[in-house]
Amino acid sequence: MARYTGPKTKIARKFGEAIFGDDKSFEKRNYPPGQHGNNRRRGKKSEYAVQLMEKQKAKYTYGILERQFRNLFEKASRSRGITGEILIQLCESRLDNVVFRMGISPSRSGARQLVSHRHITVNGELVNIPSYSLKAGDVIGVREKSKSLVAIENSLANNSAVFEWLNWNSDTMQGTFVTVPERIQIPENINEQFIVELYSK
């Protein structure tokens, strides 16, 4: 599957925030990339530019390509409720994102790799599709053979984040996707309304 594999700090600097997690390089140079950096005069962005930037930020944050993201938006727009909120909730319900949120991997790209390399189970069955959409009550676990992986052990040991919509049992290395999170519970700094306006043009 095609995915972004370029320099992450450059992307983080473009958006002005560390969207890929802690980044020492970003902290040192938290101004836009490019030859002129801070000195370049940037005029006021157009409405379209602001909306496009927000969509790109969401795509990079969740590691989703354009076609997948567009499909998620269409699914959200067909659902009852606020389209923008449902779009973010669909992104949060992806298996790779939940593996990351549970602390099994320190990054979404790492979580995607764990899923595609068949280290993760859903309701006891092996699932190797990172975009697999979870439902409330689904049980996510680390495959028996993979529980001793150093990368997983280190990630869980260093994870202190707690989310109300997820339960995690470190003894069994299993967690439950209790419910789809409300927008207010999702920590990502994304203005989903701009994305809706962009796709609605």
Rank of each mutant, 00 (worst) to 15 (best):
R3L: 09
R3E: 12
T5G: 11
G6K: 14
K8R: 15
T9H: 09
K10I: 14
K10A: 13
G16W: 08
I19Y: 12
G21P: 14
G21H: 13
D22Q: 12
K24I: 07
K24H: 13
Y31M: 01
Y31D: 01
G34N: 02
G37M: 00
R40D: 10
G43K: 12
K45A: 11
S46P: 07
S46M: 00
E47T: 05
E47S: 08
E47H: 02
V50Q: 14
V50T: 15
Q51T: 11
Q51A: 06
L52G: 07
L52E: 08
K55G: 07
K57Q: 14
Y60R: 06
I64G: 09
E66T: 02
F69P: 07
R70T: 04
N71Q: 09
L72A: 12
K75N: 08
K75W: 03
A76H: 12
A76T: 11
A76S: 15
A76I: 11
R80Y: 05
G81D: 00
T83S: 05
T83A: 07
I86M: 02
I88G: 06
E92A: 03
E92F: 03
E92H: 03
E92D: 06
S93D: 04
L95E: 08
L95V: 13
N97W: 06
V98S: 05
V99H: 01
F100H: 10
F100W: 08
R101A: 07
R101N: 10
R101D: 09
R101W: 12
I104C: 10
S105A: 15
P106M: 09
R108N: 00
S109L: 08
A111H: 11
R112A: 08
L114P: 12
H119S: 02
I120G: 07
I120R: 10
I120Y: 07
T121I: 13
V122K: 01
V122P: 05
N123A: 10
E125S: 10
V127Q: 12
V127Y: 12
V127S: 13
N128S: 06
I129F: 01
P130E: 00
S131A: 10
Y132C: 04
S133I: 06
S133C: 01
L134W: 09
K135S: 09
I140Y: 03
V142M: 04
R143A: 09
R143V: 04
R143M: 06
A151P: 04
N154F: 03
S155G: 08
S155I: 05
L156P: 08
N158C: 08
W165F: 15
L166E: 12
L166S: 09
N167H: 05
M173A: 09
G175E: 04
F177M: 11
F177Q: 14
V180Y: 13
P181G: 13
P181R: 13
E182M: 07
I184E: 15
I184F: 15
I186L: 14
I186W: 09
I186C: 10
E188R: 01
E188L: 02
E188F: 07
N191S: 00
N191W: 02
E192L: 08
E192M: 10
E197Y: 01
S200V: 01
